[in-house]
Simulated scan of single mutants.
Amino acid sequence: MIPEHDVIIVGAGFAGLYSTIHAAAAGLDILGIEAGDDVGGTWYWNRYPGARCDVESIDYSFSFDDDLQREWRWSERYATQPEILRYLNHVADRFDVRRHYRFGERLSAASWNEPEQRWDVRTESGFEASARWLVMATGGLSKPQLPDLAGRDTFTGTVLQTSAWPEDPVDLSGRRVAVIGTGSSGVQTIPLIAREAAELTVYQRSANYSVPAFNRMLDDEEWQRQQKELPRRRELSWSGAAGSPGRATPHPSRRPTSRSVPRCSRRAGRAAACSSPRPSRG
């Protein structure tokens, strides 16, 4: 018999964790499905050299729980991939998110069952389940794309992709390296590869605009100042015009007020810093 749930959430990145935490607080029966072996989403897969966020660390975090925001201490103005992944693991531990998930499962099909008014899903392993609601927390960076280049399939050298970088360190010392593309991930990884490789050639179709990041370590004084500014930063983030995405309900553990609108991490927008754009899955 196919197991039935209230909600199935696909993905365990920022959106998946946020959805799971709120669904659990509402008392719903949840099934999470995640292709990776643990939480993290984009930040689980994008391990390439230089991967870093282009939003200030204190803003690139959940704001539905004040205690959570204050207990996590970011070390840099723009956090690196390992630090962001540690943060997401901390969130998963704090709210016991993993117990709802089946990791290492990739969704292969989802169909609406009209007579039952439910979603039926199936994974590549053959696992099946059903739910009243289906939340696709897969994001816009979840499917790696290899460029369609002549000779790609006959190239005998090592091919690496920023969106599926090996978990173990890659030794490029003494090697000739070609980087194709100067988008966010290209801008981030080129300087680090250049330090190690014997020769580096960059292939660029279109110039990418970037500015200095002015990244720095956060000392205690600046961190304390940022903590005091949290209410104002949150207010400014949500005082924009109509159409701002993601106006969700406050966490049930917090008493709702006119300003207690939570916000997930900000993924949309353009790369704005030379050394700190968001990672790319493409």
Rank of each mutant, 00 (worst) to 15 (best):
D219R: 07
A178C: 08
I33Y: 05
R278M: 13
S173G: 10
S237R: 14
I84A: 00
G32M: 09
E34Y: 06
A150K: 09
E114K: 14
V177E: 08
P231Y: 04
E128Q: 11
L28Y: 03
V121E: 08
E4R: 15
A150R: 10
A23I: 06
D220C: 10
R233P: 01
M136W: 08
C264R: 10
Y44N: 12
E221G: 13
P82N: 02
R234L: 15
Y203N: 08
S253W: 14
R52M: 05
A109R: 15
R86M: 10
V121C: 10
D54L: 05
Y48I: 07
C274G: 11
G16M: 01
V202A: 03
S210P: 01
A178W: 02
D96R: 11
C53W: 06
L172N: 04
A79D: 03
A207D: 15
G50P: 12
G41P: 09
A26L: 09
S260V: 07
F14S: 00
S280K: 11
A213M: 09
F103L: 00
T257M: 06
W133E: 10
A150N: 08
P250D: 03
G104Y: 03
T162M: 02
P115K: 04
R73Q: 04
Q224Y: 02
I84P: 00
T201E: 15
R281H: 14
S173V: 11
R52V: 01
V179G: 03
F64M: 02
E128L: 03
G139N: 01
D168Q: 15
D219A: 07
A129D: 03
E222M: 12
R52Y: 01
V97C: 04
V187D: 01
K228G: 14
Q227G: 03
G36P: 05
P231C: 05
P245V: 04
A129C: 02
A137C: 03
W43F: 01
G50L: 12
R255L: 13
T249Q: 14
L160H: 07
V121F: 09
A197C: 10
S111R: 15
E229K: 10
E116P: 01
R225T: 13
D93A: 14
R233T: 03
R266F: 07
S185I: 00
E105L: 03
E124H: 15
D29E: 13
F155I: 07
A23C: 13
P144V: 06
S275R: 12
W119R: 02
P115S: 07
G139A: 01
G50H: 11
W165M: 08
L149R: 10
W112N: 07
I8L: 01
R152Q: 06
P3N: 05
A12K: 04
R106P: 05
Y101H: 04
W112E: 06
S280P: 05
L230E: 10
E221K: 14
G50Q: 11
Q188S: 15
R175L: 13
P252Y: 09
D38I: 02
G151E: 05
V187Y: 02
